[in-house]
Design a protein around this nucleic acid. Sequence first.
DNA 1: CGGTTTGTTGAATTCACTCAATCCGAGTGG
DNA 2: CCACTCGGATTGAGTGAATTCAACAAACCG
Lengths: 247, 247
Amino acid sequence: MTTLAPTPHELMIRKMESIFPLSVEEKQAISALPIQLVDIKTNQDIVREGDEPSQCCLILEGFTCMYKVTAEGKRQILSLYVPGDVPDMQSLHLKVIDINIASISPCKLGFIQHKDLRQLCERYPRLTAAFWRETLVHASIFREWLLNNGQRPAYTRIAHLICELRMRLKVVGLAENGTFEMPATQAELADATGITQVHTNRVLQVLRADGLISTVKTQMHVPDWNKLKQAGEFDSLYLHLIKTATA
Amino acid sequence: MTTLAPTPHELMIRKMESIFPLSVEEKQAISALPIQLVDIKTNQDIVREGDEPSQCCLILEGFTCMYKVTAEGKRQILSLYVPGDVPDMQSLHLKVIDINIASISPCKLGFIQHKDLRQLCERYPRLTAAFWRETLVHASIFREWLLNNGQRPAYTRIAHLICELRMRLKVVGLAENGTFEMPATQAELADATGITQVHTNRVLQVLRADGLISTVKTQMHVPDWNKLKQAGEFDSLYLHLIKTATA
DNA sequence: CGGTTTGTTGAATTCACTCAATCCGAGTGG
DNA sequence: CCACTCGGATTGAGTGAATTCAACAAACCG
């Protein structure tokens, strides 16, 4: 299945439907949402700690990451966001942003005003549940990362991260045949998994040698999904995808 | 201020008001919520991965923890929950539970039926926002733990955890004069911070030697809040407390 | 009490880190 | 078309923070 680039609204709906069944009416309502398109370059901050935005950001193309830095200047990437994600949905209810969001590749973004989202939720109360659920799924991803980074050895940890990305990209149609764009640098993977860049490099080499992944530029290929899943101890339950989306 | 043990509803309201301003009406509505009281012993599972509960669990007394285990049997504690918390609020919107929750001390729990919470939210839409916000704050705590466990050295990491507990207990009136109950064992602190029990023990000794904490049985005392905050690089922004609660 | 959990200590080990240095491909400009 | 730059990837060698393993002390509990 070769999917033409979906419109912003199509993408948003596709993503939402992976975790929440939408009615025709609800989809129409979402499709009517005003979205302001913006292109940005690599390594641009989109939202910063302390900001009080009045809009949410929908990723349309490219990858972004959420991160925090310690007093000593060490950066932890808290999550990677891919097309269809709204990394700052929390700003609907937490006025002051407590994290940073930045692009890690050139991105196309769609900004949606809080007021429009609030209006939508008022008119379609089930959508409140849908958005709430989306934030809960992201919380679940944070938890899985906590487990992953806290208890698993580097090899498993990186394998797990790659599994998650593949799965999340698949539901929005961006990971066919086990191949997908993965523009994160090794330094970024390192900051996401809490290991050093040097060590990340060595682990990736072993993963390649073991035939679990192969990379060409920013293209990641997973020849044997089951083997990688096993290496990464990956169980997608925590992504809370509904069955139709997993198939 | 010596607070008498609050009723379940008082405790719930006190906690909610630390992150969301409630009207008199809303408080009355919450007070009318049916709550089923249950006492449990230490180390009892309350909710398990795979469960599909029809109720949420309000902690009234004691500590509980949320955890996950890897295939190799390593346990990561994802969060600690204290009186006033509802650790499984997510079950309102994520049918299948993806984590475990267990007591780490004897606990008094209050179970609230999903249907009652849903009804409450329908009648008082602002409360939907309040509960949603509560789940977002917990997500924020997961993120901070990710940063803490991923990027900070063991000493800072444990100091930070103690700071967080003090702060969260304070808003429900359980940490006056820098003293509070902290029933977690060193093994549990270890699983929460992603370091070994042995090393946790050594770090605690240093923290005591540095005069940052002192412990008598399960009582934790913090003689100098500012010093501990500094040692733990603690900034409470991520808890999203409203000003009146911080004071 | 005796049994069990929790806390403490020592010694050897290791996984991952630090600190460079080097390599490489993609642009850029002369 | 090649020299130059620059970000990213790779490699080597030495180091260290935290681990493992094992034993022991202390506190807790029925």
